[in-house]
Amino acid sequence: MNHYKVVAAVIEHNGEVLCVQKGESKFDYLRYKYEFPGGKIEPGELEQDALLREIEEELDLQITVTHKIAVVNHQYPDFMVTLTAFLCLTSTRELKLTEHINANWLPKEHLKTLNWVGADQPIVERLQHL
């Protein structure tokens, strides 16, 4: 079974967090769910460099990475991920969706109202206490 190392950005702006919605997926358990943006770490790439690259590719958004907030190991039915999440800041809400179908900015206390991918659920829980 494949094991992927991935990074995710918990992007804050004016007290709200960016949540992006996945579109179609070959896996039902990922289809139309929400996630924190990010992606796979390329061979030889540092976590923060991967994060900056992925956010630029997926959202055309400039962020500042502040610090690591969680590492989650999650087993999906078809693969496993080790997800490292970083708290990030941005000076704008203007973004361009290239891989997602929707984006919402929500206060931390409203994050639980969305249907999240499995690996991101522990991060949503953690944010309730930060």
Rank of each mutant, 00 (worst) to 15 (best):
Lys22Phe: 04
Thr82His: 03
Glu58Gln: 15
Asp49Gly: 11
Glu109Asp: 14
Glu99Ile: 02
Val124His: 03
His67Thr: 10
Pro77His: 08
Asn102Tyr: 12
Val6Ala: 01
Leu130Tyr: 14
Leu87Trp: 13
Gln75His: 12
Leu89Thr: 08
Glu24Gln: 13
Asn102Glu: 15
Val72Gln: 09
Pro43Tyr: 13
Glu47Val: 04
His100Lys: 14
Lys68Glu: 15
Pro107Ile: 10
Asn14Trp: 01
Thr64Trp: 08
Asn2Asp: 13
Lys68Asn: 10
Ser25Leu: 08
Asn104Arg: 14
Gln62Ile: 11
Ser91Tyr: 01
Lys5Leu: 09
Phe27Ala: 06
Asp78Gly: 00
His110Trp: 07
Tyr32Ile: 01
Glu42Thr: 04
Phe36Asn: 00
Arg126Gln: 13
Ala8Trp: 04
Lys26Pro: 09
Ala70Arg: 08
Ile41Ser: 01
Val7Ser: 02
Leu87Gly: 00
Asn102Lys: 15
Lys68Asp: 07
Cys19Glu: 03
Leu89Val: 01
Glu35Asn: 04
Ile101His: 02
Met1Ala: 10
Glu109His: 12
Glu58Cys: 08
Ala9Gln: 03
Ala50Thr: 00
Gly118Lys: 07
Lys112Asn: 11
Ala119Tyr: 05
Val117Phe: 02
Leu51Phe: 08
Ile41Tyr: 03
Thr92Arg: 08
Ile63Ala: 08
Thr98Tyr: 15
Gln21Arg: 15
Ile11His: 06
His100Trp: 15
